[in-house]
């Protein structure tokens, strides 16, 4: 997991995609549940792409579509990330530990506009604004669920 580039994964259509090392964005990562689930997550569904599962390394991106953008509105927090659609893959790296996980986009989120200015910090350095939501599987690969948020760099 650590320092791995171009690690192949299967995307939503079942063929291999590669997680790259080109810098895309940075900010705060949060987590969410999707797919069949227990507890308050039971009604979450499989996400905007219809493929999302908590036990797979997946993510939600605020600019998955125009309709998604209208909900998340990261631009209101100064974040104008590019459009990336269902099945796109990204490497998400913890800012301090360097732990990295390759994720496949499977949903729209997080609701960046609702938490403008929120920061996640480590070793005195912070990343602001929610820019990606990770499934529990992906989030635990680079940090602790009980922290709720992590400062990350995102590559593709």
């Amino acid at each position: 997991m650590h320092g791995s580039h171009l690690r192949p994964v299967s995307n939503a259509k079942g063929f291999d995609m590669a997680c790259g090392s080109t810098s895309l964005w940075a900010g705060e990562a949060t987590w969410f549940c999707c797919g069949n689930a227990w507890g308050s997550c039971g009604s979450a569904g499989t996400g905007a792409c219809g493929t999302c599962q908590s036990a797979k390394n997946m993510a939600a991106w605020p600019n998955l579509s125009a309709a998604c953008w209208d909900i998340t509105r990261p631009d209101l927090c100064g974040e104008n990330m590019p459009r990336r659609t269902c099945g796109a893959v990204m490497n998400v790296r913890h800012q301090c530990s360097g732990a990295t996980v390759c994720v496949t986009l499977a949903d729209c989120g997080p609701r960046t506009k609702s938490f403008c200015g929120e920061a996640a910090c480590c070793n005195g350095a912070c990343r602001t604004n929610r820019v990606i939501d990770l499934t529990p599987s992906a989030f635990t690969a680079i940090g602790s669920l009980s922290s709720g948020k992590l400062p990350v760099y995102i590559y593709e």
Binding site: W31, C33, S40, C41, S146
Partner: peptide
């Protein structure tokens, strides 16, 4: 290594 029991994080 770690177990999170009944943890939820909901909007």
């Amino acid at each position: 290594d770690a177990v999170w029991v009944n943890i939820v994080n909901v909007y």
